[in-house]
Structures are given as C-alpha cells and as structure tokens.
Design a protein around this nucleic acid. Sequence first.
DNA 1: TATGAATGAGCATTCATTCAT
DNA 2: CATGAATGAATGCTCATTCAT
Lengths: 212, 212, 212, 212
Amino acid sequence: MTILLAYYYGGLMPKIVNKEERRREIALSCSDLIHEVGIKKLTVSQAAKTAGIGKGTIYEYFENKEDIIFEIINIHIDKYHEEFEKNIQKEKTTRDKVLHFFKFAIDDSEENMKHFDGFKEYLSIVLSEENEQMLNFNCSCSSFFQVQLTKILQEGINKGELKNEAIDLVEVIMVYERGLSITKMTQNDADIKVLCKKFIDSLFELVEIKKD
Amino acid sequence: MTILLAYYYGGLMPKIVNKEERRREIALSCSDLIHEVGIKKLTVSQAAKTAGIGKGTIYEYFENKEDIIFEIINIHIDKYHEEFEKNIQKEKTTRDKVLHFFKFAIDDSEENMKHFDGFKEYLSIVLSEENEQMLNFNCSCSSFFQVQLTKILQEGINKGELKNEAIDLVEVIMVYERGLSITKMTQNDADIKVLCKKFIDSLFELVEIKKD
Amino acid sequence: MTILLAYYYGGLMPKIVNKEERRREIALSCSDLIHEVGIKKLTVSQAAKTAGIGKGTIYEYFENKEDIIFEIINIHIDKYHEEFEKNIQKEKTTRDKVLHFFKFAIDDSEENMKHFDGFKEYLSIVLSEENEQMLNFNCSCSSFFQVQLTKILQEGINKGELKNEAIDLVEVIMVYERGLSITKMTQNDADIKVLCKKFIDSLFELVEIKKD
Amino acid sequence: MTILLAYYYGGLMPKIVNKEERRREIALSCSDLIHEVGIKKLTVSQAAKTAGIGKGTIYEYFENKEDIIFEIINIHIDKYHEEFEKNIQKEKTTRDKVLHFFKFAIDDSEENMKHFDGFKEYLSIVLSEENEQMLNFNCSCSSFFQVQLTKILQEGINKGELKNEAIDLVEVIMVYERGLSITKMTQNDADIKVLCKKFIDSLFELVEIKKD
DNA sequence: TATGAATGAGCATTCATTCAT
DNA sequence: CATGAATGAATGCTCATTCAT
C-alpha cells in the first residue's frame, strides 16, 4: 500500500483487522517467550515488547494477563495436538499406538521436555487458581485425547485384536497417563518407562484377544 | 525449678524453651489459617498474629516464610498419616483395604475435602517452584503410602487371596491413585468413583486368585 | 563451693568483677570478629556468642552496640599506638622517622591493610553519625600522633638538622597524612608513595638546614 | 505536534517524555530533601511524595534507590562545579586563586556548609560501601579540580610568578585539600583557616619566584 | 548477676492495569 | 486505534534492645 493509498483510504479502511486474528498473531509472536521466562514470570511489558506493540495495545486484544497466557497456551496445545495426530498414524500396531499415547510422559527429548515443563507450569496455575476458564479448557483438551484413544481402541477391537471391554478402559488409561505425568513431575526417582510398561502389559493381558 | 538447676545457673533461671517444640506449637496454632487463606496468600504478619506472637518471634523459630508453611504442612500430613494407619486397619478384606487406599481421591466429605484442597494447593507449589525441600518431602510422603500398600498386598498374597505378581503392581496402583487425584482436581465432569471401581475391578481380575 | 556455702555466701560474695576489666575482656574476645564481618555488619548476637556470654549480658557491660564497637576499636588503636612507638624508635634519621609517620597510608602489607580497612570503615561511621563520643575519641587519637611527630621534629631541631620553624608544620604534616589516607581510600589510581615522597621532599627543602 | 508526527502515528499521540530530562526533573525536586533528611535516611516514598509522583513512577526513571541518590548528588556537584568555575575567575592573583581552591574546606557560610555536610555524608557512603559507581564518580570529580588547579598554576608560571616545578605539586595540593576537609569533618578543635594559610605560605615559599 | 525469648518498626521493589493524549 | 506514562498496594525480613525469670 503506497502512502497515497493510505492517505485516501485512511478513513475508509479502518484496519478492520479481525480481532481474533490479531489476538492470535500477538500471542504467536510471544509463543517462545513463555518457554524462556516461564508462564508466571511473563510480564505484560515483555509480551508487548516482543510483539512489537505498546503495552496499552495488549489490552485492546486481551482482557488481562491471564488472557494472554491462555491464548499462548492454546497455540501450544493446538500445535501439540496437530503433531500428535500426525505421529499416531505412523504407529502400526495397536499396542504401539497406545504406547505412543504415553509419549508425553515418557519422552525425555529436549523438544518434548519443553512441552512437558510448560505443561507442568500450566498445571500449577490450574491447581492454584480458581480459574474457571483454564479449568474448562483443560477438560476440552482431555476430550481430544479421549477421542483419539477411543479411536485407537475401537480400531483394535474392529481388527479383532482387542476384546469389546477394552473400550470401557479408555478413561482408566487416561487417568493413568495423568498419574504418570504427575509422577514424573513430583517423584525424582521414579522410572516412568517401567511404570508405563507394567501398565500396558497388564492392560493388554486383560483386553487382548490371545491367539494361539 | 530444681535446686540443682538453680545452683547450676547460680542465679535466676532464664526461660528456656524447647525450640523444636515451640516451633511445632506456633505452626499448630496457624494450622487452620492455611485452610482459610491458602498457602500462597498466607503472610508472616497473619501467622504471627494468629499465633499471638510478634513478627520477629516467628523468625526465632523459622528460617523464612516457606519454613513456616513447611512445618504446617508437615503437621497436616502427619495427622493424615496417623489417621490413615488407624483407619486402614478397620477394613477387613484386601479389596476394601485397597479401596481405602483411594479414599483420599474419592471421599467428598468436608473433612477429606479440606485435606484434598490443601494438598491441591501444596501440589501447585511443588509444581511451580524449584523447591528442592518440598520436592524431597513429597517423595518421602509417597514412601509412606508405598509401604502401606505393599503391606496390604503382601497380606493378601500371604492369605492366598492374591497372586505373587500383585506385589509388582504396587507402584502402578500408586501412579493410578495420583492420576485419580489430579483428575479430580482438573476434570470437573469426571466420575472419580467409577474410575476407581473400574481400575480396582481390572486389577483384581488380574491378580486375584479365583476360587471356584 | 557446696550448696550450703552458696547459700551462706550468696549475698556476701557478689562476684565483684571489675566492670571495666570484664568490659575489656569481652571486647578483646570480639577483637578479630570485627575484621571478619566488618563494623557495620557486627551484630550483638554475634558478639555475645563470640564472647561466650548471653546477649543480655552484653548490656550489663555496654550501653549499646556502638559502645561495644567503641571498645573494640579502642583496643585496636591502643595496639597500633604501642606498635607505632616501638617502630618509630627503630628509624634512625629524622627523615625516616617522618616517613614512618606516613607508613599507615603507604604500607600495602596485609597486616597494615587490615588496620587501614578497619579505619576506613570506622571513619565512615564517624562521618555518617553524629556520634560525639567517637568524634572526641578521634581527636584524642590525633593528639597521640601530634605528640609523636612533635617529638620527632623537636629532636631534629635539637640535632641541628631542622630549622626552628619546622615545629610550626606539625599540624600541616598531619593534615597531609589524613589527605593521603583519604586519597588512598577514594582515588583508585592515585600513587600514594609518589605523593608522599613529593610532600616530604618539599617539606625538607623548606625546613632542613643544608650543610655545605 | 507536527503534522508529520501526527501522520506517523496515524492517530492520537501518546505523551512522550524525555526520560533523561524527566529523571533530572524528579531528582531536582528532591534536591533539597537530601539535605533535610540525609542521604542514608532518604526513603523512596519520601522522594516520590516530594516529587509529587507515585512511588512506582520513581522506578520508571531510576533503577533503584541508589540511582536516585546518585542523580541528586550529580546535580549538586554539577552546580558546585559551575559555581566554582565562575568564582575562580573573579580571583585576581594566583595566590587568591589557589586559596579559593580551598574555599570548600574553609568557608563556614551556611550555603557552603550545606554543600560540605552533604559531601561528608556522601563520603561516608563511598567509604562504607563497595559502590564502584560512586567510587568511580568520585575519581571523575577529582579530575575536574585537578584540571582547574593545573590551569591556575600554569597561568602563574606563564606570568612568571611561579617556578616550573609548581606544576609538580598539583596533586600534593589536592591531597592537602582532602586532608583539610577530612580534618574539618573529624577534628572539632582544628583551625582550618590557619592550617590552610600555613600550607599556602609554605607552598609559595617553595614555588614563588621572588622579585626583589 | 545472667540470660535469651520476645519484640516490631521500618523499607525497597514489582507489575498489572488505566487513561489522557 | 495505539500508546506508554503513571500508579500504589502489598510483603518478607533484620536486629538492637528489653525484661521476666
């Protein structure tokens, strides 16, 4: 857009940027910031500077600081979900797919730990505050994984690998996954992989249709 | 004051307090305060006022604010452990004993919820800070329950109710218990009791010696 | 002493320790402490512990914290004066004796720097507070050196080395010594030795009786 | 607001303040405060109130409390230097100019004593803390006077009043000036004027070219 | 005489949010 | 729409001194 155009259209084109879009844009530019300084330590000033806008402008698009954080976390989780769906398809067997489901708690790679530590901090906030919004959001996240897991198990059942009862254990598996994550966060000496293997072995002992 | 002591001091005897005991005493008097205002919101001034002593006196017995909180939490946990040991003995069958093990996550009574909410806040702190002390303490708490659970299962094995492999699942059970707690904390719509029942049923299906 | 004797003599033998002596004793035991932690950082608790007595007992012998510091500094200065008198006699020529007078500001040996840094901190307090006592004490210290210096110069005059006017410059020399000390304390790049030499050379050019 | 700027911002112009200028402004308004309560006793609250701004605003312009003090002292010293340069020119003879150089230590006028007492407190801080910033600043202040004094003496040499060696004594004179100041600060009974006169007389006896 | 438990005033600093421009 | 200057509440900790015993 040339200066002339800007001048002519200045009033006619009141930058009707889609608020929601701009919101996303700002949050996106701060996406890495949250890993660097941590959720709690993130200041509005930092966010504004990183997004290259004024502090006051932040409040044009976000209710408050929590709202910013919320949007950033949303982005992270969206990314994670996307990746998850992509990767889960690469796993061949049902057992591997279920195992992949525990990857978040098991994988010690730098990349995953960044997500994991971020989630840890996020969880800390969810636990400490009476933030309805975050709590609800948290539930919706669970739904995503519940759907995924249900799909995996159903496929196993359809393929004749698993008993029908397997589907009843979807939530049990999810609870265990949460247990594993929290164990990793709070028990220094726990061997997460072993704990995961034991569970999956037991699980499949229960629901697998043995062929002999 | 005995004559001997009087002789020893050769004069009036200064008040000597058992530091450790007084520490406990002060923490005890603030015990409820932490439920009212929350761990994070607790101020040293509040604690001093509640204990009926001066702010400076607090620092005669505690290193810093965290130290106060730590002691209070200690008291709560000690109490809980005591009660737990008392109650677990009342349960007759192995299944009931294991079920009792999940009581913390299931019981919605006001009394238990006070403990549960307190633990939730405590957990939030453990997750947010790099507080070595609390993290270590947390591990030691787990040990207590691990010992208890091991005892329960071993008795079941000894009585011929459970297979020997049951003992291998101690940690798996504990992970699940953590998962249930965190689920209760973060998933509004989860039916903890059902999730517990499903797990225990599956567990016993695996490790119970069926008599027919 | 048996209990009986303690009873009988309890009132008659009131441990008439010489207050002044005990005061000195306590301060003496804290003498090194002040070099370790610094004057300002010294706490009454530390002093009491170091002296092996109770905190309250300190106040039996000292008015307040400053009073303790005052006594400790007294000890240090007494020691320094003693040493000074001993060492000044070792110098042969009048010029060397005057030079020795500037030793405090020039000598970079660890031992002297301990004294120097202590004095620096002491000076800081004298300058900041309206402590009459310390200020007066400070004056009396100057007197000591003034007497010493006067003696040195008078001897020089008597030996026919210096003109009679030399004695008029006693205070000027002392002012310059103070100037050198403060220069060392506050001017990082100053070459104290050179500044000292220039002054003494000029001084002797003025007051020395040249023999040719 | 120029049209260009309005165009640039494309909207209402936010208030832009010259940070450095406002900093100076705030410090200036607290300038007298430091004489009233003393450097050490100055609280940020006081400073804010005196400047008529909020406590938080202080921290928009100053790193910390020390930074405020530093700026205030800077102002005082700048003023003093300015005055000094103005006044030194009024003195006609070289001797008077040198004498003027000692004015800070000699002048007992209320105005000068305000400066002198301020410097005394400032010196106390320089001596007590390991405040690099202040120490360095102190050195730079010395430079100013060294330059002034060198100019004075050089003019005296050029006019044929002083010997060339006079220039070698610049630092000696400065050391003596410091000595005089500290003497005034710590020796109640010292007659600063006499001490000054004696020194200047001796000095000129050494470096003045006698005409007869 | 000796003690040490109790005290509490005093203070720098952060940062989310507002609002005049 | 955009800005960034202004705000002020809120809190942990130290340590000299007192005084009951």
